[in-house]
Design a protein around this nucleic acid. Structure first.
Length: 874
RNA sequence: GCCGGAGUGGCGGAACUGGUAUACGCGCUCGACUCAAAAUCGAGUGGGCUCGUCCCAUGCGGGUUCGAAUCCCGCCUCCGGCACCA
């Protein structure tokens, strides 16, 4: 019988599901291994071939670790709150719960068809009331600790999404999802005090094994800087003092003016009557300037003079106080001392408004640019002659002694804006009392469930859809019977993903979020695999929650994820052109333009000839017409050449390849193998259909080798010839080493070499065959099951022990050494493995080729690299 | 602009701490099987020429070394992140 994945794969998938052999068990006699994928949002589009790369990798590792004797936890679940289901509900009236249920079923079907070994008894759905209950419970813990608070804050309001967004979700003034415009308006919102954990979020990165670039991104995001707060007295404003933060207290003598953010509370107080007009006009202008515009002209410095002056704390000099939007209200104290000699931004501002530039650190040329590096203090009274580092310390000492300031630390990280004005999220377990205070819904009354709504639309008036559910909204405090109001906001999608890895440890626990015992056994996550796009969002948020839980003694590790791996994205080829139908009008005489005729400026495309604005369009990959010279063309518009772009797979780009189709044609094992074989896990690459048949052929060969041996190959007992035993031992050793180091691509290539070379005189040794099937099992588990049975085993290979190489076959008695002359390879010699240097040297010098390259010269030096080469230097 | 990461055959990639560059797969060429094709199997496949015991090749230009894809210096290109954070 020939290899037929369609017949084999469903059979074993059913067996895995029904036998429950991959169920995770707490077994204290075994070491544990917790391998976790970032769980997906179950979208309506289902999985495409770009998704499973990480999932397949964890499946390989999970199966491997189980065979190595670990008790393995490898769960899967759904991050199922979120905008698309809600958007779909708005459009069609279908309840998000229904959409979510359908999508989850489709995802589960796809995961099953890929042959995943998930323990489905631990499945998590973040929208499930049993789960929401504990998400709300953790929020209550944050609230009790004072880490959740309501604040009137300027928020990122996105009217298209009808909600506020966290800073991290806004990119270039547009929403991260969908790219809709975002404006800043003040609103009363739930905030989480992540800044209280800023230092620990940086320090504890030393405890985890993560890619260095990701750690750096997190450090930079928290953005800790050390310096000093310095107080300036505002002249003639009844002793009003102005506090600034600086990282360069050593340049205090170089401060020639002060700048407040336009939103700074002092602005209205200190502005002099004759400057009021200018100042108010400027404040008004910056308020209306969108985030986007503010970014666009970062180079241009603008500002207005308040008419007020501050007094230099040491010299008593009068420094003019300006306002300018290059100073941000949300960082530091919202005010700065400007040192134009040693800060690029202040320098530009001073140049624009003709303010004094003073050198207080030597080393640069202030006629040309600000000098920001370290140097020696000059024109600085008691700091003169000190190097920057010492000058900073001396100045801080002076400030503290004289009561003019103190050592201070500032962070870029802001508190986490935690409420959304949407329907499909966790309600806040909070009651608003008539006196304006808030209190938690008692733990016994959790979860607070979402009310049913007829209409999921955001009102557009900054009011959440939940506010329309009057009966739900108005309730009574179960403790006092007082009438009160629920909170109409919902939590952001991050909430559910902040702690799901803990619930997986004990997913069926009805009394607690997790038991101490389960948490103790399984945590922390040994290997966490997921996209680098979560480097600062999900990973920072969940680390924060985890630390709060750690402080509450609810978890026993300070960090949740020990090792992190970011699989590279699999991209698709898409085919692009442009047209001038900007508004997608239905009856529009569309003019299509090839990419070669288009000028790109950032995100806007214009016609290179006419300058008219254009919109990018894509042709579905399968609809592309290929001309004879191999260029892609539009299927209908005659002669329109398409531009080939490699980008993330998405429906809108028409470049999605479904795993369903690949599995239908070549089987899940071939798909699994191909995705792992494409290259290193961390690296992304465009999907190419050409490689899959090669994997299919390899599996076919393996099948023929082990299971169809009646014709040409016979399985013989024992380890076979010396060469066969050596190849087997070496393959075991090398595959093991590769898997341990997550080099799954090279592990597969070694299995291929084995299949190519193992047969000798039409015989396949039984030991070799069995080792091979076991090595193959994590990668191609369906075929491995099949082959294992054909070798007369009753149990799954997934439950067998991983093979050990027989050490006596790892060593060889004769080795081949390269012979170099002056570093260039000229010949090779075969020597006994234990040959002495003199012997090897003699053999190398005896080589005809070596002699001819020596051209009669005597060797000056001979370098022997044991086991590798001998280099003769002449 | 700043900070990361990466550039190796026609393509995906391999080369572990500086030690035989191009493993493995795809593609291509030739051959076997076949009436023929597909499938399968086998052989070959970095480039060059004066076809040798040759020369040149790991983005470009230098350097260190007996020896460099690997280390150092200076550039170029692509990908990702950040973006007035005082």
């Amino acid at each position: 019988m020939s290899y037929d994945p369609k017949a084999i794969e469903p059979r074993w998938q059913q067996y895995w599901r029904e036998s429950g052999i991959f169920r995770a068990e707490i077994d204290t006699s075994k070491p544990k291994y917790y391998v976790l994928d970032m769980f997906p949002y179950p979208s309506g589009a289902g999985l495409h071939v770009g998704h499973p790369k990480g999932y397949i990798a964890t499946d390989v590792i999970s199966r491997y670790k189980r065979m190595r004797g670990f008790s393995v936890l490898h769960p899967m679940g759904w991050d199922a709150f979120g905008l698309p289901a809600e958007q779909y509900a708005i459009e069609t009236g279908t309840h998000p719960r229904e959409t979510t249920r359908r999508n989850i079923n489709n995802f589960k079907r796809q995961f099953a068809s890929l042959g995943m070994d998930y323990d489905w008894s631990r499945e998590i759905d973040t929208t499930n009331p049993d789960y929401v209950r504990w998400t709300q419970w953790i929020f209550s813990k944050l609230y009790e600790r004072g880490l959740a608070y309501l604040a009137e804050v300027p928020v990122n309001w996105c009217s298209a999404l009808g909600t506020v967004l966290a800073n991290e979700e806004v990119i270039d003034g547009k929403s991260e999802r969908g790219g809709h415009p975002v404006v800043r308006i003040p609103m009363r919102q739930w905030m989480l005090k992540i800044t209280a954990y800023a230092d620990r979020l940086i320090e504890d990165l030393d405890l985890v094994d993560w890619p260095e670039p990701i750690k750096k991104m997190q450090r930079d995001w928290v953005g800790r800087s050390e310096g000093a707060d310095i107080d300036f007295t505002v002249e003639s404003a009844d002793g009003e003092s102005l506090r600034v933060f600086t990282t360069r207290p050593d340049t205090l003598f170089g401060a020639t003016y002060m700048v407040l953010a336009p939103e700074h509370p002092l602005v209205s107080k200190i502005t002099t009557p004759d400057q009021r007009g200018d100042v108010e006009a400027y404040v008004d202008r910056t308020q209306r300037k969108s985030e986007r515009l503010r970014l666009a002209d970062v180079q241009e410095k603008t500002g207005a003079f308040t008419g007020a002056h501050a007094l230099h704390p040491i010299t008593g000099e009068r420094l003019p106080i300006w306002i300018a939007d290059y100073v941000l209200i949300s960082y530091g104290t919202g005010a700065i001392m400007a040192v134009p000699g040693h800060d690029e931004r202040d320098y530009e501002f001073a140049r624009t408004f003709d303010l004094e530039i003073r050198e207080v650190v030597s080393g640069g040329n202030l006629d040309e640019a600000a000098y920001e590096k370290a140097g020696t203090a000059v024109n600085s009274d008691f700091l003169d002659g000190l190097p920057t580092h010492d000058a900073k310390a001396r100045m801080i000492d002076w400030l503290e002694e004289n009561g003019n300031g103190e050592r201070a630390v500032s962070y870029k990280l802001r508190d986490w804006l935690f409420s959304r004005q949407r329907y499909w999220g966790e309600p806040f377990p909070v009651l608003h009392m008539p006196d304006g205070s808030t209190k938690l819904v008692p733990e016994a009354d959790l979860p607070v469930l979402l009310p049913e709504l007829d209409d999921y639309k955001p009102s557009g008036e900054f009011e959440p859809p939940l506010a329309r559910a009057k009966e739900w909204l108005h309730t009574t405090d179960p403790e006092t019977g007082v009438e009160c109001v629920r909170d109409a906001n919902t939590m952001p999608q991050w909430a559910g993903s902040c702690w799901y890895y803990l619930r997986f440890c004990d997913a069926l626990n009805a009394d607690d979020a997790w038991s101490k015992e389960a948490e103790n056994y399984w945590m922390s996550v040994d290997l966490y695999v997921g996209g680098a796009e979560h480097a600062v969002l999900h990973l920072l948020y969940s680390r924060f929650w985890h630390k709060v839980l750690y402080d509450l003694d609810l978890v026993h590790t300070p960090e949740p994820f020990q090792k992190l791996l970011n699989p590279g994205m699999i991209l698709g080829y898409s085919y692009r052109y442009y047209d001038d139908n900007l508004a997608n009008a239905p009856d529009f005489r569309v003019r299509a333009v090839a990419a070669s005729q288009v000028k790109l400026d950032g995100e806007t495309a214009t016609d290179a000839k006419t300058g008219a604005e254009l919109k990018a369009r894509w042709v579905n990959a399968e609809d592309v017409r290929w001309s004879d010279d191999g260029t892609p063309r539009h299927p209908e518009i005659e002669g329109l050449e398409l531009e080939v772009v490699t980008e993330k797979m998405s429906k809108s780009r028409g470049n999605v390849v479904s795993p369903d189709d690949v599995i239908e044609q070549f089987g899940a094992d071939a798909l699994r193998l191909y995705e792992m074989f494409m290259g290193p896990l961390e690296k992304g690459a465009p999907w190419s259909a050409e490689g899959i048949p090669g994997m299919h052929r390899f599996l076919q060969r393996a099948h023929r080798l082990v299971a169809e041996n009646e014709e040409s190959v016979t399985i013989t007992d024992g380890a076979g010839t010396k060469e066969q035993a050596q190849l087997t031992a070496r393959t075991i050793q090398e595959v093991t080493d590769d898997v341990e180091n997550l080099r799954l691509n090279t592990a597969i290539s070694k299995l291929m070499v084995f299949v190519r070379d193992i047969v000798s005189e039409n015989s396949l040794p039984r030991e070799a065959a069995e080792a091979f099937v076991l090595l193959l099992n994590p990668f191609a588990p369906h075929l491995a099951e099949e082959l294992w049975r054909s070798l007369d085993h009753q149990e799954s290979p997934g439950l067998s022990a991983w093979p050990e190489p027989r050490s006596e076959f790892l060593e060889t008695d004769r080795i081949t050494l390269a012979v170099q002359v002056n570093g260039k390879r000229r010949d090779e010699v075969e020597v006994a493995a234990d040959a002495s240097e003199d012997e090897i040297r003699a053999m190398a010098l005896a080589s005809e080729r070596v002699q001819s390259h020596l051209e009669g010269r005597d060797p000056r030096k001979v370098i022997l690299v044991p086991g590798r080469l001998i280099n003769i230097v002449a």
